[in-house]
Each structure stands twice: as C-alpha cells, then as structure tokens.
Write a protein that binds this DNA or RNA. Sequence first.
DNA 1: AATGAATGAGCCTTCATTCAT
DNA 2: GATGAATGAAGGCTCATTCAT
Lengths: 228, 228, 228, 228
Amino acid sequence: MSVNALDDTKLRILEAAGRTFADRGFREATVRDICQAAGSNIASINYHFGDKERLYIESVKLAHREMLQNTPLPQWPAGVPAAAKLHGFIYTFLCRVLNRDDNWQRRLMLREIAQPSAACEELAREYIRPQFTVLLGILDELLPTETPDVVRHRTAFSIVGQCLHYLIAGPIVRWLVPPEEAALNVPEQLAAHIWRFSLAALSGIGVDAAKLEVPQLPRIAQTAGAAS
Amino acid sequence: MSVNALDDTKLRILEAAGRTFADRGFREATVRDICQAAGSNIASINYHFGDKERLYIESVKLAHREMLQNTPLPQWPAGVPAAAKLHGFIYTFLCRVLNRDDNWQRRLMLREIAQPSAACEELAREYIRPQFTVLLGILDELLPTETPDVVRHRTAFSIVGQCLHYLIAGPIVRWLVPPEEAALNVPEQLAAHIWRFSLAALSGIGVDAAKLEVPQLPRIAQTAGAAS
Amino acid sequence: MSVNALDDTKLRILEAAGRTFADRGFREATVRDICQAAGSNIASINYHFGDKERLYIESVKLAHREMLQNTPLPQWPAGVPAAAKLHGFIYTFLCRVLNRDDNWQRRLMLREIAQPSAACEELAREYIRPQFTVLLGILDELLPTETPDVVRHRTAFSIVGQCLHYLIAGPIVRWLVPPEEAALNVPEQLAAHIWRFSLAALSGIGVDAAKLEVPQLPRIAQTAGAAS
Amino acid sequence: MSVNALDDTKLRILEAAGRTFADRGFREATVRDICQAAGSNIASINYHFGDKERLYIESVKLAHREMLQNTPLPQWPAGVPAAAKLHGFIYTFLCRVLNRDDNWQRRLMLREIAQPSAACEELAREYIRPQFTVLLGILDELLPTETPDVVRHRTAFSIVGQCLHYLIAGPIVRWLVPPEEAALNVPEQLAAHIWRFSLAALSGIGVDAAKLEVPQLPRIAQTAGAAS
DNA sequence: AATGAATGAGCCTTCATTCAT
DNA sequence: GATGAATGAAGGCTCATTCAT
C-alpha cells in the first residue's frame, strides 16, 4: 500500500510531466507547473527523479510504453498471409500516429523524433527497434530471399516514412489539400493507400531492380547559402 | 550610407539569429549569444526588432526567402520522360534534405514544420506548395488520367514521406542499422531506392487499386487517453 | 540492549557529524551526508538530536571530551630541568597540532577557536586553561621570580603563538617557502627552532626588559573604517 | 563620470559583500542581502562579478588591499637601526590586527586565514609575500650573514606567529587572563613585549644554536582517536 | 523506536528587457 | 543612432525538517 502510494505519486508526476512537456517542450515547461498539475510539491521531482532532465527522459519512455500498450500490434495466427500482416502493421502504426484524441504521448514522441535528446537513443533501442524487427519479419515473406539487408532496411523505412509523414507534417498536409479531402485522412483510408502503394512497390523491388537503369543525375546547384 | 550600415547590422543579426535558432530552438537560444555571434550590442535586438519573438519571425522569413532563392524548381526540357523527371525530383529533394553543409535555413524550417508557429502557413503556401505542384505534375504523367485527386495527393505524400524520413528520423535510422550501412545512405543511393520503389508502386496504384481487397481490419484497442 | 543500540546509533551519528563538520563547516555539511556517513536514516538526526544545530553542539562537546582523553598533560619526574620541560611542551604541542592523521577533533576545535560559538568558552576553561597553566609553571622556573603576571602571560602567548601559527597559517606557510623547505617543517625541527628561539628570548625578558628602550612609535595612519 | 558611476556601483557591492561575508561567512551570506545592503539589484552581482564566488575573492582582495593602505608600513630613512625597524614592523602589524574599530577587513581576513579558500593562494602571492619579504629584509640585518634560509624563514614565522595569535585566538586570550590585564593588550604594549622577546631571541638564534643541544624527545602518545 | 516519502522556504543564477547617456 | 549598465521576474535546485506509518 505504501508502495502503491509511492507509485501513485511518481506516476502522477510522470503523467503531468508528459502532458506539460508535450504541450510546451522541455525548456518552456517548468517544474513548478508540472508539480502543480501533479498536485505534488516542487521538491518531489528532485526527490523522485533527480532533476528535470531525468524526469523528461522517464516521461518520454512512459509515452512510448503507453502508446505501444494502448495500440498493440495485432497477434497473427499462423497461416495469415504476409500481405494481410503488412496491412495490419500499417494500420496499427497509423492509428497510433493519427489518434485524434488529445494524447500527449503522441505529441511528446513527435517532439522527441524531431529534436532528439538524450532520451532518444534509449528510446530507439528499447521501443522502436522491436517494432522495426516485426516489420522486417513481414517483409521477409514478401521479398525475394536473396534481397540484401540494405534493401530490406530501406524498404522498411519507405513504409514507415509514408506513415510518419502524416504525423510529422500533419499541419502541412492539411494546408495543401482541400478541407473535405483532409477529412478523409483517417487511419482506415490512409492504411489502404499506403498498403496498396507499398505492396505494388514490393513486387518491383529486388526482382527487377537491377534492370531498372537509373537516369543520369541532374546537376544540383549547391546553394551559396551553405557557406554564408 | 547610414541606412546601409543599419541594414548590415540588421542582416548580421538576422543571420546569427537564424543560425542560433536553428541550432538550439527559440527558447534555448539567448539574445546574448546571438548578439555576440553578430558582433553587436546586447540591446541591438530590442532596438532593431522590438523583442526576441519578432526577431525569430524575421529570421524564419529570411530563411524562407533564402531557401527560395537557393532552391529553384527543377526545369526539364520538353520530351524528358516522366520517370526520369521523377528521379530528378527525388534526387534533388534528397540532396537538399541530406545536405551535410551547415545550412541553417533547412534546420530552421524543419523546426517550423514539426512545431508549426505563425510563420508556418505562409511557408507552406509559398515554398512547399510550388514544389508539391511540380511533383503532382510529374505524377500526372505516370498515373491513369482518371485517377482521383485524393489518390494523386496521397501518392505524392508517399513519395515525399519516404524522402523526409531520412531528414526527420535521421538519428533513429543511424541507430537502427549498422554503421557501415548507414554510411551508404547518400542521396544517390537513397534516390535510386525510393525511385524504384515508387515507380513500381505507381504501376499498381490507380489501375487495379479497386481490385485489391483490403484485408479485414484488425481490432485496434483504442484505450484512448488511458490516462488522460 | 536497546539503549545500547540507541547509544551506538547516536555515537555513530556524532562521529560522522564531527568529521563532516570538521571538514566542511556547519553550513556546508549537510544532514544527508552525515546520515549517509553514519549509515543511518535521514530523519535520525532530528529524531535523536532535535535539529542540526544541537547535533553540532553535541559533536563539538564530543570532540572536546575525546581530546581531553587523548591528550593528557605531560608529566615530568622531579628534577627535570625547566628548559627540557619547555622543549617537551613545545614538541608535544606541535605533534598534536601538525598531526597528519585524520583527527577531526583538532580540526573542529580549530574552527571553534577562529569562529567562537557558544561551545567555545567551555572549551577554553576546561581544555586550554590547564595546558596554559602547565606552560606558566614551566616559565616560572625560567623567569625571574619578580616577573609580573602580564609579562608571564604574554611570554606564554608568544610561545603558543609560534606553535599555533603552523596550524592556523599552514597553507600560507607552504606557499611562502619553497616545497623542499616546507617538507622540513616537521614537529622535531620546528620544536628545536621554537625552543631555541624562546629560550634565548626568555633570557632577555623580564631581566633587562626595562632597560631596552622602545623606539619612538611610527605614526600609524589610522584611517580607521575608511569605508565603513 | 559614467566610469565613475560604474566604479561606484562595483565598489558599493564590494564593500557590502565584504561586510556581509565577514559577518556571516561565505555560505551564510546571501547575495540577496548583499545586494540589498549595496542598494543594487540582485542581478548586479552576476553582471559585475560573474558569480558569488568571484565576488567573494574580489572582496577578500579588497579587504587586504585596504588594510595595507589604511595601515601602511612606515617608511624608514637610511640609517635607521634594524632593531627600530623591527619594532615598527611589529607595531604596524599589531595595529592592523587589533584595530578595535569594526573593520570588516580584519574579520574577513581572519576567516580566510583560518579556512583558506580559492582566494587564499592569490592573496598569499599578491599581498602577504611582499610583507614577508620586508620582514626578511629587516631580519637579515639582525642575523649572522651565514644564517640559512630555513632559519631565517622560521624566525620570521616566529615573529608573525606571536602577532597573529592575538587576532586568531583573541577571544581565548581574553578568557585566559583577568579583564584588567586583557585591557592592557593594546598594540603599543604588545608590540613592546613581542619586540623585546624577539630581539632577545634573535641574539640567540643562528649563533649558538648548534651548541644548544635539544633534549631527548618525549614519547608522544599517538591518540587512538586518529584512527577512529 | 525508527523510517522514508514528502514538504516549502530559500538559494544562486539566468534571461530578456529597459534606460540614461 | 547606438550602447552598456542595470533591472526584476522567474527558473531549477538544495536543504533541513516533518509526518504518517
């Protein structure tokens, strides 16, 4: 029970911190506000987490953990075709990313991905890599067996990149397309598109890739600004 | 002449501010450091720009303007095949995005995209939309004419998303693959991969899309806001 | 038995506190560090001693008590010449003072002497005065009987002052002389010097003191409190 | 004039800091109180001195500088006997040390000598060494020319030690002697005593020192407390 | 009797901003 | 027009202390 109470306080602080960090970023968020939101004393952060930065790292880890728990990957029984599993992966990923509810976990992850901090390496190791491994396992069933690692990895990034784009550049997407079309960008529809796009792409990757001659590279004007 | 001198000082401050904001973000960047980098007085920012926030907006605008100048849209002579133009577009995009040189403009823009401020809408309208339009033009040549807008747009986002992923999630990519493979992620190789992937995908989009039945959706446990 | 355990804990805390206070002073020493050094709970100080200040007083008293036990007054058999007793006194004093071992009691006493607190008067009465009396006894044998008290006292202070200087101003002494000379400042050598110096001085004090005309006082510009 | 104003503010802060540090020590003194006493803003310390510690060092240096200026050594015309110069040195030293006025400089120096900080080494180099050199010069005229350095230095420390004792152990001296005698401990009388004592000692140092056999060393009971 | 979670006052420092010159 | 000295609000953090258990 006292253990419970401890956990309660730490958890309350973590939740409040996650929400505040997601709203305002690391610097803009103050420990005073976090403690007030958590209903705890201003010294409790130092007591439970050491300092603000370690609190941040813990709240980022919690965010990812909760995202995975709230929207876990489906469990596929044996015999499910790889194409169906790929669709399930994409759809789950988009559900996490596009969740319309005000879930601070997603917003905090976005900040962390765009501006990686000390928490990011740990995050990649503990939470992202397992998901990546699952995707690679699905792709293995869809790609020729002799496909080299570098192609398998890039293919996985091609799929993940399409999904993440709606998280990263969400506001820009909404400004580039008409409102009535933006309203259609729900996980179901987007998953269908990305799945079709990627499935078609997969049939053209690895097999005839070598035959497809890359056009001559255009000359890229290296901007003068680079040195100014 | 004194106007000139003023402009010089303002420009020097703007450049220093842009670089510093790109490096450290709005809050983390201090006016002291910016002034020191610009070789100007500590009070010069308030004198020339009013306050720190207006300086930030001005430096974002400058970044925007300089990127427009430094990144002209690709021009292809008539008769170039659409597939080649697509490759040129992807390669150019990746060169801008993966540019190792210190172009603070790009990094500042990235911050704006991930955490949109007031300056962001203008950015989307003036800088991103024209590029988007060029890409749509290329895709029009590769997709069936009856392809609906929503599919054309999503296809464009699928391509852009693949490219942006190496900018946005660059550190994570480097943590997920072995170092010797990460070293291969140069614009030339990545462009070849994304081009092949997308070209293969295009042949499967729009045409037989309707035929490709989406698998039954997995049940996504939306324990939304489990803690919110 | 539980009383014994209590005493053990209190003693452990007192020792740890004494050492820590001696090292870092009252304010700089934290109750956390003291409790950690004592292997006790953070709340044990308030529980056993009420507050930090009372712990300090108790640890000064303990230091006092232990020094009394560890530093018995020298005992000379009858017939030892006064000059030899003086040398013994000086040498013993210097041994205590220059003791390289970690005796926190001495260091804590030094702090008390320089910045007297409430505990200091008791210290002077019980610990210092007896030693002072012994020295006066020795000097009585070396000075003319008619020597007035004030001269006897000042002579004692002259001897004690020479010894204490190597404790008080130890670091400064080491900065003023070359390292190889500082290495020679061991109790044996310093005792020999101070003994010779003082013995020679004693032959000139009290006897012909009146004959030795003090030179005219230089004018001391007492711009006292020029800024106060 | 603006330079003057700057100097005024810095000096005001330094004086207030010196007084506060002398009263309460480094840790106990707060920058808030110092600034309030100086009539300046709380950020002015950081602006003018960087941080609290550098302010402390500067105030210690100022204290010593002002002590030397307020009570400078006398200037001796050629031909003044060394004995008279020695008396002048001792008297001046005692005047600085025993100044009855509430001069924070003396109290701050005492703290610094007893608990050397980062300021102390600089202090020794810049302010104490020159005074030490003057004393050595006087002693050179009073000691045989072949006197080795180590003896010359120890002799100087014997003289300085006698004087400093009345600063360091002032309260204890007052507790050890009757009040009416303590009242006599003014610079004039103490200088006369220390001068006579030292002058007599000097005639016995260096010359017959070798002849004066040191008595057998008593056995010093190394206290058990050293290891506890 | 003894603990460890929790408290709140207060510390030094940093920062954008202002103002007299 | 431009400066640098000075400001005050606010930030993170530390600390001795308390309280429920």
